[in-house]
């Protein structure tokens, strides 16, 4: 798109590449390197950029720490269920908004859209009291339900615009062929929207995976804790100086999502591209 011919252009390009590349990649590199350093080398006021001796002590500690695995399992359960549920609900709603006309549709659509701006922490004040009333505190259910909040507005809109691109003629011809509305939706339209759904699900998954605010408040037992508060409550108190282990733990908890992401990236990018082309 841009020409890089003159030395000046080359310089600007190289500078942009180096500076941002450093900003983007160096921290991750530093995380890995710190995790691989033995204890004393971490506390060197003149840090080494390549460990003198590679030590897997930090990783060993993390792998032997039962709690990390419990948190991982909890986070997976909660994030998978909430993102699947939210995507399902959002898909029906998105389809409805895109292909049907009824009274109140527009009001509701914009209400859902505005919902992204509602401060989550303000919602939490009431959600906490609600969950307390229903006895859902310290229960995965509280998290699963409230995480739907994160994904529903964005997901509904993303999927609505996805369905918008699917021509109505497809539905019409299915109708002519005698397919019921339910069947048309599930067999013909939804399969076409799979990239959109996957990217919505990833979006929801990442958000619930990251959440600290809700899980810090709605869950208090170590056995049900998810990753974000788990990491904090494990390493922010007394152990906040064991940086090597903290970095190792950070890497370990990032691996499952990274793998999943690498696997599904194709869909995600496709979903994004579709959204971008629309504009």
């Amino acid at each position: 798109m841009f020409e890089i011919r003159t030395p000046w252009q080359k310089l600007v390009f190289a500078l942009a590449f180096l500076c941002i590349g450093l900003y983007v990649f160096f921290p991750t590199y530093w995380m890995v390197i710190t995790a691989l350093k033995p204890g004393q080398e971490v506390f060197n006021p003149n840090p080494t950029f390549w460990p003198r001796t590679i030590s897997l002590e930090g990783f060993r500690e993390v792998f032997l720490d039962q709690r990390i695995w419990v948190y991982l399992r909890n986070s997976l359960t909660v994030s998978l269920s909430s993102s699947a549920l939210a995507t399902l609900v959002a898909a029906y709603a998105g389809y409805s908004f895109s292909k049907f006309r009824y009274r109140g549709r527009k009001t509701f659509m914009y209400l859902v859209l505005t919902a992204q701006m509602f401060p989550l922490v303000v919602l939490l004040l009431t959600i906490y009291l609600m969950m307390r009333t229903f006895g859902f505190l310290d229960n995965y259910l509280a998290l699963i339900l409230s995480y739907i909040t994160f994904v529903l507005p964005m997901g509904t809109w993303a999927l609505k615009s996805y369905f918008d691109q699917i021509p109505d003629s497809l539905i019409e011809s299915a109708k002519v062929d005698g397919a019921s509305r339910v069947m048309t939706m599930h067999r013909i339209i939804f399969p076409l929207a799979i990239p959109g759904m996957v990217s919505t699900a990833i979006y929801g998954f990442v958000w619930s995976w990251n959440d600290l605010l809700y899980s810090l408040t709605l869950i208090t037992s170590p056995g049900k804790r998810t990753l974000a508060p788990g990491l904090i409550l494990n390493y922010m108190g007394e152990f906040q100086s064991s940086w090597g282990t903290m970095m190792a733990a950070s890497i370990v908890v990032s691996i499952p999502v990274t793998l999943m992401f690498v696997f599904l990236q194709r869909f995600f990018i496709a979903g994004l591209t579709a959204g971008a082309e629309k504009g």
Partner: peptide, 21 residues
């Protein structure tokens, strides 16, 4: 045992004692 770091204990204790857990 259900524990928290010292700095979070009061907060978590209040939350937990309020929630019927």
């Amino acid at each position: 045992w259900v524990g928290w770091p010292w700095g979070n204990t009061l907060e978590q204790l209040i939350i937990r004692s309020q929630g019927g857990e």
